[in-house]
């Protein structure tokens, strides 16, 4: 039992996050390679669409990874590389959509809807609470006298 547990732990320790990057594709310079990985994680695979090119085994994803690395090796900045891919495939290729006019609804929408809901809840409780807390109209002079007599006397009005 102990041995089995140890084996399981060992295997778990071995498990590495799976990535599609082939060792042959990797750049010799670790810093450059790290930048390439970061860029790849944010670029959508155009074939499978819900994976980044870093995760995807699709041929086109592989070719894009190679292209990213070639451009980095040629001295392009991260932004220049991403801009090139976006200029070919549009914002769709970015897994994190940019914050711009056409995506305001996407980014701000949920917050607006949440604020609207919050407002609706507040208004709802305010109104309901308001009804319950309305002070009853004060007693008229006649009513006050009757009340006093009731409290002072022995109950016979």
């Amino acid at each position: 039992m102990r041995r089995l547990a140890a084996l399981v732990l060992l295997l778990l320790a071995w498990a590495m996050p799976a990535a599609a990057v082939d060792p042959g594709e990797m750049l010799a310079d670790p810093a450059l390679e790290a930048r390439a990985r970061d860029i790849s994680k944010d670029l959508r695979c155009l074939v499978c669409q819900n994976q980044s090119i870093d995760d995807s085994d699709a041929q086109l994803a592989r070719d894009l990874r190679v292209l990213v690395r070639e451009r980095l090796a040629a001295g392009s900045s991260d932004d220049e590389v991403v801009d090139y891919v976006v200029s070919r495939y549009g914002d769709f290729v970015l897994l994190r959509p940019p914050f711009k006019l056409s995506t305001y609804v996407l980014w701000i929408g949920p917050a607006v809807i949440f604020a609207g809901g919050l407002l609706a809840v507040v208004v709802f409780y305010r109104r309901r609470g308001g009804v319950a807390e309305t002070a009853p109209s004060p007693l008229s002079a006649e009513e006050s006298r009757r009340l006093e007599r009731l409290l002072d006397g022995d109950g016979r009005a």
């Binding site: 041929q59 086109l60 894009l64 190679v66 292209l67 070919r88 495939y89």
Partner: peptide, 9 residues
Amino acid sequence: RSVAAIAFG
């Protein structure tokens, strides 16, 4: 290696 293919998007 998809050089032109990527250029054409």
